[in-house]
Amino acid sequence: MTKASRQSSSYEMVLIFRLSGEAFAISVSRVHEILDPIPVTEVPNATAFAPALVNVRGAIVPLIDIRQRLRMQPERPSNSTRLVVLELPVAGIPTRLAIMTDAVEEVAETDISALEPIPDLGSRWPEQYVSGVIRHGSDLAIFLDTENLFCPDPERAA
């Protein structure tokens, strides 16, 4: 490894979770907490992307269904279903939101500078929501572009 490449490498902690068997990664700095499933309140006439609200320790938090944007089929809750509460700027406003995952796997350290563009399976994932893939053991994990993924208005997502 040359000196230059070592300088540009930046290690970051990521949370690895699964949706329908696929591994996804999100920066740990965005993760507020991980919860067992809690009751959700459906919002009538809301979009399928943000269908409900949950009470996270006294705060009302929107529940976001990222499968919608990742073109994935819905899955039934199981024993391993977890709610991941994130805190991140959405359209410039700090926002707390929750996503439902099939399972939360681990927190891993990864070299963000070694992020690879999505190989041949590029057509499967809408590219504006995905930053690239990272190595996760022998597997690959999709590193999500939280900025675009959680944008309330899909038209604005670049």
Binding site: V43, N45, A46, F49, V61, P62, I64, V90, L97
Partner: peptide, 20 residues
């Protein structure tokens, strides 16, 4: 939040005594 602001017919939400 921004996700539900445009949903018509609601003024907002509240937490009930049972936490829902």
């Amino acid at each position: 939040s921004q996700y539900h602001r445009d949903v018509p017919g609601f003024a907002g939400a509240t937490i009930l005594g049972d936490g829902s």
